[in-house]
Design a protein around this nucleic acid. Sequence first.
DNA 1: CGGAACATTGACCCATGTCAAGTGTCGTGG
DNA 2: CCACGACACTTGACATGGGTCAATGTTCCG
Lengths: 240, 240
Amino acid sequence: MGLDEAKEPAMQTSPHLALQPAVSARPLIPFEQTLASGALKRVEAKEFVFVEGDAASYVYRVETGAVALFKVLADGRRQIVGFAYPGDLIGLGAEGEHVMNAQAIKPTRLRCLPMSGLHRSVAQDPSLGFKLYQALARELASMRDLMLTTGQRSATERVVSFLLAFSRRNKRNGQDPTAFELPMTRADIGDFLGLTIETVSRTFTKLRTMGLIELPRSSQVKLIDIDALKGLADGDDQVL
Amino acid sequence: MGLDEAKEPAMQTSPHLALQPAVSARPLIPFEQTLASGALKRVEAKEFVFVEGDAASYVYRVETGAVALFKVLADGRRQIVGFAYPGDLIGLGAEGEHVMNAQAIKPTRLRCLPMSGLHRSVAQDPSLGFKLYQALARELASMRDLMLTTGQRSATERVVSFLLAFSRRNKRNGQDPTAFELPMTRADIGDFLGLTIETVSRTFTKLRTMGLIELPRSSQVKLIDIDALKGLADGDDQVL
DNA sequence: CGGAACATTGACCCATGTCAAGTGTCGTGG
DNA sequence: CCACGACACTTGACATGGGTCAATGTTCCG
């Protein structure tokens, strides 16, 4: 992330907290092991995994589904700071209490790891602390990219960056980088990119009209002209 | 941070990466020790400490002065993602290459720690890894708060949040929470908050006209009515 | 004292927000 | 299988906050 995809100021959709796949040569990987044996929890769409102020007693790994992480202002305005997909860890980095909310956006299965177990694992495996550090560093880098996007880019640029991030994730996972399903609503996308539902919707329509994407269903996106989209993402908005 | 100042969705101006002051009872603190013996480097205002793509061979601690950390888009738009003040560490979390730029905004002294030394210290002091992890976690939390601010708040709310963050920092440091010097230009503030120079300037003027702040010099701010400012920061903008 | 950099202010404009109808789409119950 | 209601999404008309462009003021340093 940030090193991926040329020098493209890549926006990362996912916190991407998955630890490096444990090197197979290692005899024992306490954390991965503990995690694998952790309890499985199911949450329905819209159900909260944790909310601001909750004791941060577990770290979760998303097994299936998707989770939105967000903060809210007193008057209800909401900023989604990331989406977690299968393989991503959520709840890391909280000391004592959670300072944000985690809400499933579709039926989701989570692997639960008690904080106490995490601490034990860190004690057993000194390199784990460094791995957690690296995981947070990646998360921080993607957060900064998102800042760059919401702070400086136009609505079109933001939406296109968002779509291209999906494309990259699919490519990374060996799936079709030109077609994907959006697990979140327009409202979620808006609250992630700092736009309104209407602006997100209009931007999708504009991109479709321009022949750059197709929308077979409102939640399904097909990228038709990725190069043109990459051009749009960076600021040469004169292309329109 | 995030827990500080009531439930106020506090924005953190500084990366605030200073490690916990080493507990005095500990016999030897390799990292603090190594850092204390690290080379001192002076940089002038506007001089770069590192730029995107540089090998990440050092971590720096700001001793005096101030540094802006930012990313840029191909067309030059700039997003400042944080300011580093005395006590803050910069350059942490980079793997291999820096993915952002660090530029002094005033004459600055930096303590340099080679990455190799950092790795050695981590090996000697297992708890150091966890401290670095915590430092990044704090940084991540402040980044998310900034996201909430730039993604959801109005220009006035952003500027007021920014000023209140200075007030909090001064209070934390035992200095006057109602008066401070801004080390950065209006352009820097704009690029941090996702606003233009003109909007920042107009907002300062508006707050002065409203009697909430005074501006003896353009770089000096005096907060007159902190409670009103706190009200403005949260969204009850009807106060105007 | 002069000039460069920074800051303020004004006039205007436009991208995006707001408000208000519609139009799918999906799941449930008759 | 169809009808209905609830949501999500789209689209249109209009309003406005903040951006842009341009002129002027201020500060600071050589």
